[in-house]
């Protein structure tokens, strides 16, 4: 067992896979010599050398295009897009090329690649470096999307993503980089598409993702003090989505809340709300409630950013109020 920060877990997770498989390579801006702007890739250049850990120019289309071309010809690249907001300058490669080409070619080509990206707010960087874009990625047929919420899951889900034969968008909540936890020694490998029940309760099921997971757990703790017991599920993987676990828990508790950092309109909880409404409507005892960042660009000032992103306080009071109505 070792105490690891979320950011240290990234390097450990990547190293675990690079040691195992010589076709795993890594590229991105400042990922090698500098160890990543968020220090998520520290030590990888030293261990694996400049052939496998490569700095690139500020050329997001080239980074992801190169990852795609390498993936279709025998490598398993891990590419970094420094801030997920920057997907906007290379979205064509992600959406039109990587996501569609297997289907268009009748399965002739595969894209075993991982795109890592720092996602979401918490660092007061303003609207162009803070958006939570998991809903962008989720809505594209052909992309898998995972969002770890703990250092342990960074390693396990990274292993699952690297070993998966399909392209995986791996979103790292920037707000979680400094968080620390005990992580077991040895190899950690998870499966994609498995949600995790973190806390059991009977009054409601609360789904959270990424940076919203620790806040939701804290809110659940507060609610427990008020006599409200909720199940908390870390969704972990948006595509594939573990609807079996979600439907089971929502049916059991009769209520569903989602806690989402992405802006409200068409956030990931909207699709889950639709699935729940269509499939287990009569198991619901009350309205589905989504707790999200409002449909606004994220402001820079810490006071404003804190108002925008769901807080422990907002999560707890929204749930308590809805359950008392």
């Amino acid at each position: 067992m070792a105490q690891l920060t979320f950011r240290e877990a990234i390097a450990r997770g990547i190293a675990q896979e690079m040691r195992r498989d010589p076709t795993v390579v890594m590229l991105g801006e400042d990922v090698a010599a500098a160890g990543g702007v968020f220090k998520g890739t520290v030590g990888l250049l030293d261990e694996f050398g400049p052939r496998r850990v490569r700095d690139t120019p500020i050329s997001e289309q080239a980074i992801l295009g190169a990852a795609m071309g390498a993936a279709m010809t025998g490598l398993r690249p891990i590419a970094e897009i420094m801030f997920s907001d920057f997907f906007a300058v290379c979205w064509d490669i992600v959406v039109n090329e990587i996501a569609k080409s297997r289907y268009m070619t009748d399965g002739q080509v595969s894209f075993p690649l991982v795109i890592r990206s720092g996602n979401g707010g918490g660092l007061r960087f303003g609207a162009q470096h803070s958006q939570s874009v998991e809903n962008w990625a989720m809505m594209i047929p052909g992309l898998k999307v995972v969002v770890p919420a703990s250092a342990r899951d960074v390693i396990g889900l990274m292993a699952a993503a690297v070993r998966d034969p399909d392209p995986v968008v791996f979103l790292e909540a920037k707000a979680l980089y400094p968080t620390k936890m005990d992580v077991p020694d040895g190899e950690i490998v998870d499966a994609l598409g498995v949600a995790r029940v973190l806390r059991n309760g009977d009054d409601a099921t609360v789904l959270a993702l990424g940076s919203m997971v620790p806040r939701t757990l804290a809110a659940a703790e507060r609610l427990a003090g008020e006599g409200i017991s909720v199940t908390v599920i870390d969704v972990r993987s948006l595509i594939p989505l573990d609807t079996a676990t979600i439907l089971r828990e929502v049916a059991r508790t009769g209520r569903l809340f989602t806690v989402e950092e992405n802006p409200r309109v068409l956030g990931w909880g909207a699709e889950i709300a639709a699935v729940v409404s269509e499939e287990i409507f009569y198991d619901l005892d009350g309205p589905i409630v989504r707790i999200t960042t409002p449909h606004i660009p994220l402001p820079a000032a810490d006071a404003l950013e804190d108002l925008a992103i769901p807080s422990v306080e907002r999560i707890a009071t929204t749930i308590a109020k809805a359950l008392s109505d």
Partner: peptide
């Protein structure tokens, strides 16, 4: 290795194949 219909996108992809080689 494919015919690409968004102008320019396949140039970086060709780079990736070349990198793999």
């Amino acid at each position: 290795m494919g015919s690409y219909a968004v102008i320019g996108s396949h140039l970086p992809i060709a780079c990736g194949a070349a990198w793999s080689a």
